[in-house]
């Protein structure tokens, strides 16, 4: 018998989350899970003394109502594709995957997964923001899978489906659902919507294997993106973070070639490109917890409150990748963070 509990062996349910349809749906999905009632999700999620790496091996689910901020301004460390009305929301805190370079490890005190079930409140906050957006000539740009991977969760919580349908009925809203998942099947049957971008993060196989624990192999992600393209969805490709490791140039050349051998470049909406960068406080916190990966021990520098490679290295990485991508995409289709 396994001496450890499996993922989602326990579900913490906030009192206020009871009675929400989504809560019932999720609980029905895990009939054997032990339910524990909590007054406020932060009692469990934000308690001191937790161990993120250990929790990541056996994540618990927390169902809660978001009573705080429902919409945030986009980070300057993320690409906005030239869209000034850049916002994001956090429907789920944390992710099913365990990427070694992920900033969430330093951002949250817990690896347990919080699902906010008051979806209608999130919708209303977006409707309000659309009306009040600073630049009314461009749409409100909203990545909904920002501090998580929504598509990976889709068979547990159908948030992608809900947000696609919501965006279909909202003018002036452009959403992005970014994922490393191969779970496109759960969206099959939904009418594609030109203002709902499905974005796949692609990494060389060696990066996926060594640093993206729990994610599907890159080939499967590419295959999922192909199915989305074939179904008529706007597809974005994300090469982020681009990492430096022995043989990185060949690995990324092969990745780009493999990608466009499967995906017709003329059908790709756009691509984003970014090197490893992280808030310095998160980086420090993660290094204290994780001593099992070399990715945190590269020659990074601190500029302001951001840890990243030296500028010359950043430029070399992004210039190389841009060059490779420009064999297939137009320069204005590629948004780069350097």
């Amino acid at each position: 018998m396994n001496s450890w509990h499996n993922n989602f062996s326990h579900i913490y349910v906030e009192k206020e989350a009871r009675g929400h349809g989504l809560t019932d749906k999720i609980l029905a999905r895990f009939p054997k899970a032990t339910q524990i009632e909590v007054d406020n999700y932060k009692e469990v999620f934000a308690r001191p003394g937790q161990d993120f790496p250990s929790q990541k091996k056996r994540m618990k689910l927390i169902l809660a109502v978001e009573k705080g901020k429902l919409l945030y301004h986009g980070s300057e460390n993320a690409q906005n594709f030239g869209l000034p009305n850049f916002y994001y929301n956090t429907l789920i805190l944390n992710c099913l995957y365990n990427c070694a370079y992920c900033y969430l490890q330093g951002m949250y005190p817990s690896a347990n997964i919080v699902v906010f079930v008051n979806l209608q409140d999130f919708f209303q906050s977006v409707q309000k923001a659309i009306q009040n957006r600073p630049d009314p000539t461009t749409p409100l740009y909203l990545p909904v899978s920002y501090d998580t991977d929504l598509l990976a969760f889709e068979s547990i919580v159908p948030f992608c489906r809900e947000w696609i349908e919501f965006s279909r009925n909202e003018r002036d809203l452009l959403i992005e659902i970014r994922t490393k998942s191969a779970n496109f099947g759960s969206l099959e049957g939904i009418q594609p919507h030109p203002e709902a971008i499905l974005a796949w993060t692609l990494s060389p196989e060696i990066v996926a294997k060594n640093y993206e624990q729990g994610t599907p192999p890159t080939q499967k992600r590419i295959a999922a993106a192909k199915r989305a393209l074939d179904a008529g969805w706007p597809v974005r490709l994300c090469f982020d973070p681009v990492l430096r490791f022995p043989g990185w140039e060949d690995a990324y050349k092969k990745l780009i070639e493999t990608t466009f051998a499967t995906l017709p470049p003329e059908k790709i909406r756009d691509a984003s490109l970014g090197v490893f960068r992280m808030n310095a406080d998160y980086f420090k916190r993660i290094k204290k917890m994780r001593t099992d990966t070399d990715i945190l021990y590269q020659s990074y520098q601190k500029e302001g409150n951001i840890v990243s490679s030296a500028e010359s290295e950043r430029r070399e990485l992004t210039d190389t990748l841009r060059g490779l991508l420009e064999n297939y995409l137009k320069p204005d289709q590629i948004d780069t963070w350097t």
Binding site: H5, Y12, D39, S54
Partner: peptide, 9 residues
């Protein structure tokens, strides 16, 4: 309220 972790089965 306090919540033991319930890591072990």
């Amino acid at each position: 309220h306090f919540y033991p972790e319930m890591a072990l089965n």
